[in-house]
Design a protein around this nucleic acid. Sequence first.
DNA 1: GCATGAATGTAGACGCCGCCAACAATGCTG
DNA 2: CAGCATTGTTGGCGGCGTCTACATTCATGC
Lengths: 201, 201
Amino acid sequence: MPAEKPETRPYHHGDLRSALLAAAERTLRDKGSASLSLRELARDLGVSHAAPGRHFKDKQALLNALALVGYDRMAEALEAADEPGLPLQERLTVLARTYLGFAIDNAELLELMYARKHEPDAAEQMAAAIDRTVGALERAVAAAQQRGEIVDGDPEQLTLVVGTSLHGLASLAVTGKFTTEDAMAAVSGLVHHLMYGLKPR
Amino acid sequence: MPAEKPETRPYHHGDLRSALLAAAERTLRDKGSASLSLRELARDLGVSHAAPGRHFKDKQALLNALALVGYDRMAEALEAADEPGLPLQERLTVLARTYLGFAIDNAELLELMYARKHEPDAAEQMAAAIDRTVGALERAVAAAQQRGEIVDGDPEQLTLVVGTSLHGLASLAVTGKFTTEDAMAAVSGLVHHLMYGLKPR
DNA sequence: GCATGAATGTAGACGCCGCCAACAATGCTG
DNA sequence: CAGCATTGTTGGCGGCGTCTACATTCATGC
């Protein structure tokens, strides 16, 4: 046994799975999803080209796991930003800005999260993750409704109205239809119109 | 020179570019964007694996062209469905249903259209195509505003509110968050809330 | 009509990729 | 410490996108 540096990479990496996810997220951010290959991740981490296969049965499995990480992050961000005490209009504005900010900062990751690729069983986990994400919106709407701040009606339906608008704005912002500033600036107007509608009062 | 059938595929295909786009669209619909390869398209059309390279400098160029085809189709569908005589609420409902229907029928194509991949120069053509698509919405909003049917204010801002909502709904429907029926059923409620807002009147 | 250059299609090669199977090193548990 | 599951390695397979060199056809001007 030659006296090599004691910390020459041991045969086992220790936590290759997490390292792969982290490296993948970084690559995604830096170079886009197109140039995300398992072999390159393996090279970056100094393991063999087949090592990732021990932790993800195929590439899609890694992408699924990555998407779940994304949902976790997003739900955290929304829950941290939410201020239950605010009236709905302000509360929605905060949530919208948070969502929009996350979307812009994690465009490629978001694309993965909303990709329609993970069908068989991962779809369930995704659905659960989405529910958690939408939870902040649902709570905000329900609270406002209880306070009599907004109209009666199926709260799910109301959440849908708000949710589609925010999601649509984020989606357009991410695909480059707006600059970050324009999108952010549009938020307050958007929320205002959601509250008061297009019909004159 | 053996007497083969006179119509054995001639050396030149005739309209390989169009054929490639058509085949690609079919493959996209049938088997998804994942399994869309230039080589397979070439095989399907009975040409050599390098022939597509004569018409599209690389795979992304074909995808860009495909996206433009998609925008054309969508704009056509919206323009055909639009009924300028209707009051805004009904008019929006019709447009929303049309957009939603197109989105569901052409999910993979839409994904391409909204992909954030075509940056350098194709982005301009895309932007123009999007403008045409949004045109129907803009006209509907402007007309309603002129009739005094809806509130004053920057028409672009109002169009944005409507556009984000519809786009968000379509986006969620396409990614499988709703069934087709649920999404379609949600349209009228969505448009209603857009018109009258969440605040009680 | 026919030469000649531009379009278009073909054949082959290169390097990358995802995935698989066989084998090696390590960790864990009785 | 034996034995087994886990994790990593090596090598190979076929498919892919792209490039280059070459072949065929088309079209244009004379």
